[in-house]
């Protein structure tokens, strides 16, 4: 299935300070089923924007291009439909939901996608079992389930909570937006484990990162370098190691 995820000529803009600001300027990217791809690129080049656009955030307006996901027109779908179809975005900055119990949120989310996927909903007992198994594999305290979603979580806890959601929602396309930033080595390994457990012939991942460290655990298939809203270079895992050593400067110079 070469047509798992195909992004063609994607342009997206945002309305900021009264004017339009174009952020994505023709992104072309293909991820075959079963592969793990990486996007690297300097701050502000549009990585998060790409991630948000794939997940369906409304304030990014697509002005040209297309995205097909498992044969469907992804851009025509609502965010919750995309989630049901298997898209998952681990946010660079997870959002706080005051007063919303984490376990209740997770269960509502899991049952929403299960319903949409035509699967049976989980009752409280089943869910508790599933979630306990997941927190354990992520070395998370069960106590985090009782807290409010992301409220008062440390940076690392927030990232782990994202991975917990990913584990429970069983996506077929996981987009991780700098999930490794600010994590210590142990936490990093846990995040990588979370992704590796999902790896399967019908699961793909798009990992946004600045660091080779995470990639050591993930064995990516391809690395893409993004600059100024475009993919300017693609290559094998060695590309990431090169960036780790030399930074982005040479690529940017080449692209200019």
């Amino acid at each position: 299935m070469s047509n798992f995820l195909k992004i063609s000529g994607l342009h997206a803009k945002i309305e900021a300070d009264g004017g339009d600001k174009e952020i994505l300027r023709g992104v072309d990217l293909e991820i075959p089923a079963g592969e793990l791809h990486v996007i690297m690129g300097p701050n502000g080049c549009g990585k998060s924007t790409l991630a948000y656009t794939l997940a369906g955030r409304e304030d990014y307006e697509v002005t040209a291009g297309s995205v097909s996901f498992k044969g469907q027109d992804l851009l025509a779908m609502e965010p919750d439909e995309r989630a049901a179809a298997g898209v998952f975005l681990a946010f660079q900055s997870p959002v706080e939901l005051p007063g919303v119990n984490n376990a209740n949120f997770l269960r509502t989310a899991v049952n929403s996608v299960r319903r949409a996927r035509g699967e049976a909903e989980m009752d409280a007992v089943q869910f508790l079992k599933t979630v306990r198994a997941a927190t354990k594999s992520l070395s998370m305290q069960d106590e985090m389930l009782k807290r409010n979603v992301n409220v008062g979580f440390s940076g690392g806890e927030k990232k782990r909570n994202e991975v917990l959601q990913m584990t429970l929602l069983q996506p077929s396309l996981a987009i991780l937006d700098e999930t490794d930033s600010g994590l210590d080595v142990d936490a990093l390994r846990i995040v990588a484990d979370g992704v590796n457990k999902l790896r399967a012939p019908d699961f793909s991942a798009l990992v946004i990162t600045h660091h080779q460290r995470l990639l050591d655990y993930l064995s990516p298939d391809r690395i893409h370098v993004m600059a100024k809203g475009r993919i300017i270079r693609s290559g094998g895992p060695e590309l990431a190691r090169q960036i780790d050593q030399d930074g982005y400067a040479t690529f940017l110079a080449d692209a200019a």
């Binding site: 997940a55 919750d80 005051p98």
Partner: peptide, 21 residues
């Protein structure tokens, strides 16, 4: 957007946030 990207409908998302409030 956070709620909806987790599969919640618009109504469920509002319901959850309001109940939290």
């Amino acid at each position: 957007f956070y709620c909806r990207s987790r599969g919640l409908s618009e109504e469920d998302a509002v319901g959850l946030i309001v109940n939290g409030f």
